[in-house]
Computed example of a mutant assay.
Amino acid sequence: MSTYSIKDLEQLSGIKAHTLRIWEQRYSLLSPKRTDTNIRFYDDDDLKLILNVALLNDNGFKISKIASMESNEIREEVMKLTERSLTHDDQIHALTICMIEMDEDRFDKILSTNILKLGFEQTMLNIIYPFMSKIGVLWQTGAINPAQEHFISNLVRQKLIVAIDGQITQGGGKKFLLFLPEGELHEISLLFASYLIKSKGHKVIYLGQSTPNDDLLSVYKLHQPDFLLTVITTSPSSEYVQEYVNALSERFSSSEILVTGYQVIGQDLVFPKNVRQMNYIRDIKELLEEIEQVPQEK
């Protein structure tokens, strides 16, 4: 069982800690436990409840009404709401609940419904990608545990692989070599980039997680790609990122290198001439739009 501080509840639900304390006192919504040293904490059931309460409250339910409902009634209303709501924030909130509950069936249903309504690309851009960014930050701050993050990441990864396999390209187009640095395992952004690139008719050589430098060089010499693309989330660490970017620039001077990720965006880095920072996944989309598209096989 995981434990959470009131600050964790605030980060996960979006409800200010001050408001949570008022709801706790006025409506007895939460019942915090205490450690042996008298420090208040909350458990998984408290978190699930407050996520559901937040979603209902955001959609017009008065807190006094929610407080009078049984837990099964709250859950039923949340399920009805997420099935009919097209608001991206509502869907992200619902996926957060699925993550906490590790409810694979519910997660798959929400994702499949949004793909039918919005299409795969828009679902990824507007719902899944912001959701993954959110839980990435929450994981790094300790607000969620590694098991919850891995559970969701693997489900999204499965969806992406199926979608990528459905993209069949003919010859032509640019050649992209996609990889993660040694020690880097956060693959979702790289997989989505692969989907976007293939959907525009370009060729992808996909090396994936934790690619050894010598292997990267061997594949580069064999394929001579136009672009290299990497995502730096945790490895290399911040003090070595500049050195790593400089080494990529020198080693692969004939190609344009695209870099993004938590250790890149907003950092005080100097990019060599053949290295371009991608601030968001939409930047990759914009880059692809700059490149002449090639015909797709129907």
Rank of each mutant, 00 (worst) to 15 (best):
F131D: 01
I188N: 05
T37E: 14
S64H: 04
E187S: 03
Y280D: 15
I257C: 04
G60F: 05
S153F: 07
Q296V: 07
V264N: 03
S254C: 10
E76P: 01
D89S: 09
W139Y: 02
L125Y: 09
A67S: 14
M99F: 05
R21M: 10
P32N: 08
L185Y: 11
V156F: 10
L12V: 14
D90A: 05
F107N: 00
C98E: 07
F227M: 04
L180F: 03
W23Y: 13
I115P: 00
W139K: 00
T19N: 02
L47Y: 06
R106S: 13
L287W: 13
F107C: 01
D58Y: 06
E70L: 09
F227D: 08
V275I: 08
I205Q: 13
I74G: 13
V231Q: 12
T19L: 04
T3I: 09
T233S: 10
E256A: 11
N72D: 15
I281T: 09
A247E: 13
N145E: 11
N279S: 07
E187A: 01
A94H: 06
D45W: 07
P130I: 12
S189E: 12
I265C: 10
I128K: 10
L51S: 03
T19R: 04
E243S: 12
L191T: 01
N59C: 05
I144E: 00
I168C: 09
I257R: 04
T35W: 14
P146D: 02
S5K: 08
G172K: 00
R251A: 12
M278Y: 08
L95D: 03
M132R: 08
D89R: 07
L207H: 09
I164D: 10
E286W: 12
V245M: 02
P295N: 04
D214H: 12
I144M: 01
L51M: 11
R276Q: 14
L160A: 08
I100S: 01
R84H: 09
L118C: 04
L222W: 07
I205F: 10
V162T: 15
L47P: 01
P130Y: 12
S5C: 07
C98S: 13
T211H: 02
D8Q: 06
S254A: 15
N52A: 11
D215W: 09
Q148A: 06
H202C: 00
T211F: 03
K117Q: 05
V156M: 10
T96H: 08
S133R: 14
T234Q: 08
N246H: 06
D43H: 11
E297D: 09
L81A: 06
G14L: 00
F252N: 01
Q140K: 11
E70G: 13
D214N: 12
L269G: 07
M69K: 14
T19P: 02
L229Y: 13
E184G: 00
R282I: 15
T3K: 07
I135S: 03
I100Q: 05
L47K: 06
G201K: 01
Y206Q: 01
L30G: 00
I257H: 00
G60R: 03
E24A: 02
V137S: 03
I188H: 04
L196T: 04
H186Y: 13
A163K: 04
S13F: 08
E76N: 14
A193Y: 08
